[in-house]
Amino acid sequence: MSEKWLRLIVVATMILLVELLCRVGVIPRMVMLAPSQMVVELAEILRTGQFSADIRTTFTNIAISTALSIVLGFVAGLIIYSLPALRHALEPLLASYYAVPTFVFYPIFITLFGVGSASIIAIAVLLAVVSMITATLNGLDRIPRVLRKTAQIYRMSRAKTALLVELPATLPYLFTGVKLSVAYSFIGVIASEFILSGAGIGYAIAYAYNLFENGHMYALILLVLVTVTIVNTILNMIDRRLQARRQR
């Protein structure tokens, strides 16, 4: 509990420090707005609904990308797990996967899917899906052999074993994959919008930057930071609960 408070104090102090530096003019208004002003600006754009369409586009894309990554990653993980030869061959590639700067493939998706949500979702899925595959493989690897033997002792069918023993045993590991899929979907969608798109929060931030509209820009940046923090905190809470059950 005291650690929690300490953390709150650290974060609050940093925000207050920035607030102070902005107020006295050490950080010029041209560079950064005071945090309190950001909040005011955010409330303002949420009230007027000026960016509602962009916000909706972005969060829809993130949701679709997350769902696709989780489902595709899980299924791919199952398939790779059931084919040891394929897995053997893929493993060195999977280990190097995050070394590939995925965003450079964005133009290729544009030629395939056109400019718009489909390309953005494709790039975000490309970024997020591998963490789900890795998490699935990891979870399946770590089902203790004795649990499968136990299912055999109860003379359970293959399907029942998968549903009642293997799935719950892998769940904590799968959730790690879910967490990463969410984070990478956020990064993939917003970064794609930022660099090369005509809609969404990322685009709106880049647009506001180019027009020197610092008020809008910081309001949207704050919106992203707050959303990610909230989502992250909730996921971590669920994660901690799942991990507490994991022993061995």
């Binding site: 033997k149 136990t150 109860y154 719950p168």
Partner: peptide, 26 residues
């Protein structure tokens, strides 16, 4: 036939009561 293994074979996602009842429910 019942088997008790050396490794801990309790299901970490079930509480003690549900662990014990598992086989009967199946």
């Amino acid at each position: 036939v019942g088997v008790v293994f050396q490794e801990d074979a309790s299901f970490p996602w079930l509480n003690v009561r549900d662990n014990v009842a598992f086989g009967l429910r199946r």
